[in-house]
């Protein structure tokens, strides 16, 4: 057990626990806070996997921007959800069964897949190398994504407008 392994497993535990807590919180603000913790953990995992640039992006964009946006919206809407009910059991049990099957098969895969046995060691990708790769090999996807972001911006602006009197009825 070296440091790399210890770090990964403890971070993985942190991610799973905080995500589990986030999913089960009644209070939305708490849920978002736990999720931010989870995303910090993910960022650390990215760093462990040799992607410091992605780790930085994860912290800045996901934890820093997206989650704060969530928080902002939650506080703006001031939603109180004290009596949240779950689905009736009749509708839940197929989902539970499928989820169980999913987990079993996932475990089987993790145990039997030859690729799963490959060991990941510490590595490092320079952000400059990564940037050059992205803009050389996937420039079209970058352009498309930027266009998508522009569309999302316009769409969000349009949808987020307060409904006028005509559109309300």
């Amino acid at each position: 057990m070296n440091l790399f392994n210890i770090l990964f497993y403890s971070i993985a535990l942190l991610i799973v626990v905080s995500t589990g807590l986030a999913v089960t919180r009644r209070n939305l603000v708490h849920a978002v806070i736990y999720l931010i913790m989870s995303f910090f953990g993910s960022a650390f995992v990215f760093y462990l996997f040799g992607a410091p640039f992605l780790a930085a992006l994860m912290v800045i964009v996901y934890a820093g921007a997206i989650m704060i946006l969530f928080l902002f919206i939650i506080m703006m809407l001031r939603v109180e959800t004290p009596e949240e009910q779950l689905f009736p059991a009749r509708q839940m049990w197929p989902a539970v069964a499928v989820a169980a099957g999913y987990l079993v098969v996932g475990a089987l895969l993790a145990a039997h897949d030859p690729a799963a046995g490959a060991v990941l060691g510490p590595a490092q990708t320079e952000p400059a190398v990564f940037g050059a790769y992205v803009f050389r090999n996937t420039w079209l996807a970058v352009e498309v994504t930027s266009l998508l972001l522009l569309v999302a911006l316009i769409g969000a602006l349009f949808i987020g407008k307060r409904p006028t009197h005509e559109s309300e009825e």
């Binding site: 509708q91 989902a95 989820a99 089987l108 895969l109």
Partner: peptide, 19 residues
């Protein structure tokens, strides 16, 4: 839920079959 169940079942099919 139905969508995810179907996706999971499809995944099961494609992964379990070669197993």
């Amino acid at each position: 839920l139905v969508v995810s169940v179907v996706l999971i079942l499809l995944g099961l099919y494609y992964f379990v079959y070669p197993l």
